[in-house]
Nucleic acid binder design. Sequence first.
DNA 1: GCAAAAGTGTTGGGCATACACCCATGA
DNA 2: TCATGGGTGTATGCCCAACACTTTTGC
Lengths: 239, 239
Amino acid sequence: MESNTKPIAHNHISVDCVVIGFDGTQLQVLLIKRNTQELHDMKLPGSLIYQDEDLDEAAHRTLDTLAGVQIDNLSQFKTYGSHNRTKNSLDTHWLQQAWHQHIERIVTIAYFSTVRQLPRISSQFEATWVPLNNIQELAFDHNTIILDALEHMRMLAITTPSLLFNMLPRKFTILQLRTLFSLVQNRELDVRNFHKKLKQMPYVVSTEEYQKSVSHRAARYYRFDRKIYNKVYGVRAMK
Amino acid sequence: MESNTKPIAHNHISVDCVVIGFDGTQLQVLLIKRNTQELHDMKLPGSLIYQDEDLDEAAHRTLDTLAGVQIDNLSQFKTYGSHNRTKNSLDTHWLQQAWHQHIERIVTIAYFSTVRQLPRISSQFEATWVPLNNIQELAFDHNTIILDALEHMRMLAITTPSLLFNMLPRKFTILQLRTLFSLVQNRELDVRNFHKKLKQMPYVVSTEEYQKSVSHRAARYYRFDRKIYNKVYGVRAMK
DNA sequence: GCAAAAGTGTTGGGCATACACCCATGA
DNA sequence: TCATGGGTGTATGCCCAACACTTTTGC
């Protein structure tokens, strides 16, 4: 039986959200500016959880209140609970200011989501998009969390390709699609082989629209057909 | 900035461990008997975490103190934090008895590990091995956690095949190996194709030993060569 | 005309699948 | 002699990777 005498930890629990968007050229991540007298850096959107709030709810609330974005495909991917992840004195000081209480360890459940393109963030928020290859040192262990999230994304893209199509505009060119695949898989993709692969995706359908006013041959626009996709992948992957 | 006025949750944090072993025929999971006046069921080995204890440490401690097993490849795979996962009155009553305090929500980080064969559990513990296809209704949401763990195991076996070899005796027959693969992948495997696949695994090396006193042609014993494996898979997968 | 991206087929190798028969051993 | 599992080869289709040239458009 699990009785014991050692002090049980009454730790705080938070959620942190890694939201990734694609601007047509690069992947970008949503970050929050942390501006105090001592601090001028950034962090992932996150929050302690409230009583009687489920983890998923907390993650949604966090993104809504810190950046004004509503997300429908948030899912947790890893939990960080090392008791020295909140040992940096700048971080602990900031925590006290923000939450008006002394906070020791925080166990945080990291959430991941993608968004279509880069939703505009109202200037009332301290949130901003930052290109992935342009991220400075972040608060806590948030750099690590982002790296883990990208690895998670690679896996997710294999099992659930719709993830990637949901990051593109409704009408997209094959170059955009290939750039996105290439970024996520982190490797070069052969142009012709990519076209072949597309032909095997019945849910990528061509439109009759073409680019306009580009200084080269205009590319055809394609779209993602969710109905066909769901038939192919079954109901299990409705997102 | 993330200040707020709502009540912050001071929830409890626990770890629960899904440990899977292979007896040569079936997969089995390590469970703890829960015997009180009202309760005669089982649960996963788990514990609230102590102050200044890392999550991974807590998981190791839990298995050590509840079952006397030391594990070297424990890793978290999912966190469960719904605030009604501890709403069953039998469960809450049991929690009070075990921990001598009123405990509301518990956020639990679920850990997964495999072990070689089925380590014997000393009778001083309330722990026991239970075949996977023989599991009754467990405490809390532990049935769900086990199902998720098995799915996790399937994935892990793809990226890290050593996982499976570390579940077998040092010397094993191909039938044992195939049975294990088949259980984990949850499908039938063709005998001849399986032999072919083995030939492509340089780290499975044949010995000159054969079964004895079996009422059929004696099978050759094979062993797993970790050095060769590490050369093939690189240093990243030393487990 | 030139820069820049669009678009288009063929080939070879590797990997997974399907499938059937003889061998060795103990009871 | 029978029951039980051990052990072996071939043929097919699919997927992936490698690889180069012509087309369209704006400047």
